[in-house]
Design a protein around this nucleic acid. Structure first.
Lengths: 230, 230
DNA sequence: CAGTACACGTTATCATTTTCACAAAAGGTT
DNA sequence: AACCTTTTGTGAAAATGATAACGTGTACTG
């Protein structure tokens, strides 16, 4: 029913539910059952009910879940019913792409600062944001209300970037650089490396081609529930 | 020791090991123990030995693993010891960013085609690649040897893109669009949505701030092994 | 050339996560 | 107003994944 320890997998699924619920909202669907939601997400219906049970009771027995209400509840549970101000550290290809990515604002993650150690980049304007020296991050944290730092440096400079971030007192880091970094235990850290997903895809594809039997050669991950959606 | 069903988590960790092993290679390290590798990856040493055991015996007792050799073995196990030709479907901000991302080629994923349904984009040249109509994908698959399709369309067009891809006979899809899609069971599908990671970060951060006790408010995921690295 | 320390591979144990199964509650129906 | 259908919430069972413990092979030492 409430808190205790919540599996990481649950959090990831909650994020997925939000995605589907927003699709449903756009479609104008009012109510959804765990069964239907489960199908759309390729998970087990009980799974969904269990996941939600960590945070409270959001459904109506015999009816299902009110789409918008559930969506709002999950977002509140995840802590994404607010605005998170972010700074980007490392203005290379990827950093620029993220700065131009409109989805950030839509999802409540506002990029309010861009930092780089390259003197040639400092002063440059990217979609209305002036690139500043990474050393100035510390001064700007309070002024801009930065709570998340996004590392988009080359791998060899990721740790140094992290050090600046930690020094600036920021407690949440999203690391896009393909390198492991060390941070104090009071700092939250997430890695994004989509090549890991590519590796997984390559592996599954190779498997499927070798043993074309069991569906899409899943390793043992997701179930294959029905596979017939509308 | 061999095959059986391999957990998805294992695959993801293997990808991480590769990353660390390549760092070690650059540093000139010859041999690494499961203990050391484990520390660098924040996992349990047994975990690493177990993960590797799915694929064979790669170490030497009393010594450890030869870094380069192990790296090559893992890559072979994952199926990334070859070149995978990819096509990008959807040439928006994100698609362009990926097209310009040099890391793809380094990792063995060659982007050999770019497709979009917008007439204004067709014909455009992006880093040496001519954008073509998505409908032409089918003709080009064999000619270019495309085996992976990358969807970078807006969410509402993701399913249509997927349909074209399936129709073209491609069996592996990497979906960057924030939308669930349906594919036949013989098609491998992976999702990349880094907002899921942002949600997880937001959640953990919120937790940590509420209950600052247990380290970085981990839900229950990774261990916190030692936390002292060099 | 024994002896010893080390680190892997493997089996066994433990913990967590997922699934199953059912009782309780809501809403509609006769 | 009682009944029936539906679908949630939840505890128990099953499956899965992670950790610990142990035995084995390697290399090094004296």
């Amino acid at each position: 029913m409430k808190s205790e320890h919540i599996p990481r997998a649950t959090i990831q699924r909650l994020a997925m539910y939000v995605q589907v619920l927003e699709d449903l909202t756009r479609d104008g669907t009012q109510v959804v059952s765990s069964e239907l939601l489960a199908k759309a997400c390729s998970v087990n219906p009980s799974q969904i009910r269990k996941d939600l049970a960590y945070f409270g009771e959001f459904g109506v027995r015999g009816v299902g879940y009110y789409v918008q209400e559930l969506n709002a509840s999950i977002k509140r549970a995840l802590g994404v019913d607010r605005i998170w101000n972010c700074a980007i550290v490392g203005v290379g290809n990827l950093g620029r792409a993220l700065l131009n990515h409109t989805e950030f604002k839509k999802r409540g993650f506002y990029i309010v600062g861009a930092y780089d150690c390259d003197p040639f980049k400092i002063g440059e304007d990217i979609s209305g944001l002036e690139v500043m020296c990474t050393k100035r991050l510390k001064d700007k944290v309070n002024e801009l209300g930065i709570v998340i730092a996004i590392i988009t440096t080359p791998p060899e400079r990721a740790q140094r970037a992290a050090n600046h971030i930690i020094d600036a007192g920021i407690k949440a880091i999203m690391n896009f650089a393909p390198a492991r970094i060390d941070v104090p235990s009071d700092v939250c850290l997430e890695y994004v490396d989509f090549f890991h997903h590519f590796y997984a895809l390559a592996f599954n594809t190779t498997l499927t081609q070798r043993y074309p039997e069991s569906g899409s050669g899943k390793t043992s991950s997701k179930p294959k529930p029905d596979s017939s959606l509308k």
